[in-house]
């Protein structure tokens, strides 16, 4: 393009179990409405076994939160709140390709719901940070206990957040980008 300076789209996933605060965080951070997109999926691609009854692939749509932060003149960051269930992993594959990384939100009352997300990003070496959402009781636990419960590696950042507060969400994004940068830096020999 000659008629304007180069533009760089970027994206970050917001993952975690149902009701953990993904939509809340994306809404708190986004500068735009509307915040829902529809992603088409063929059911065969998500391993639904009743498609055998139908010769053609059936298509359904999933709604997905997204938000936008215009970082500067040429950098535009998109946030995608991705449904936590593993049957949506085909969406994660597309969204995580080329991404900066992911925020994994955790509700300490239901920690196991974030395990699929953590495993997903670990297995693909995608940078992620843990955001412990401050639901009632979240402050009763310390970082060591959370690291233990989630079996995190020592370099994975953990931060307590309030998904309703933009400043809190921004702080978590900053943590993620720092983490992603530390992984692109050449390893000293």
């Amino acid at each position: 393009m000659r008629d304007r300076s180069e533009l760089y789209p970027l994206k970050i996933l917001v993952a975690g179990g149902f009701g953990v605060g993904k939509t809340t965080l994306v809404r708190a951070l986004s500068e735009i409405e509307p915040l829902l997109t529809e992603q088409q999926m063929t059911e065969t691609s998500v391993g639904v076994d009743d498609t055998r009854a139908v010769p053609d692939k059936r298509t359904t749509t999933v709604a997905m939160d997204f938000g936008r932060i215009t970082v500067d003149d040429s950098l535009i960051l998109y946030l995608f709140g991705t449904p936590g269930q593993s049957r949506f992993w085909f969406m994660w594959d597309e969204l995580s390709r080329g991404s900066v990384g992911a925020l994994v939100l955790v509700d300490l009352r239901r920690v196991d719901e974030c395990f699929p997300a953590i495993d997903y990003f670990e297995n693909r070496r995608i940078p992620y940070v843990i955001g412990v959402n401050t639901f009632p009781g979240a402050n009763d636990h310390d970082e060591e206990a959370v690291r233990d419960a989630l079996a995190l590696s020592p370099e994975t950042p953990v931060q307590w957040i309030d998904a309703r507060e933009a400043s809190s969400g921004i702080a978590l994004l900053v943590r993620l980008v720092e983490h992603a940068l530390s992984r692109t830096a050449p390893v000293p020999t």
Partner: peptide
């Protein structure tokens, strides 16, 4: 990433 970090 540096620019993103700066902007955030």
């Amino acid at each position: 990433l540096e620019r993103l970090l700066e902007g955030l």
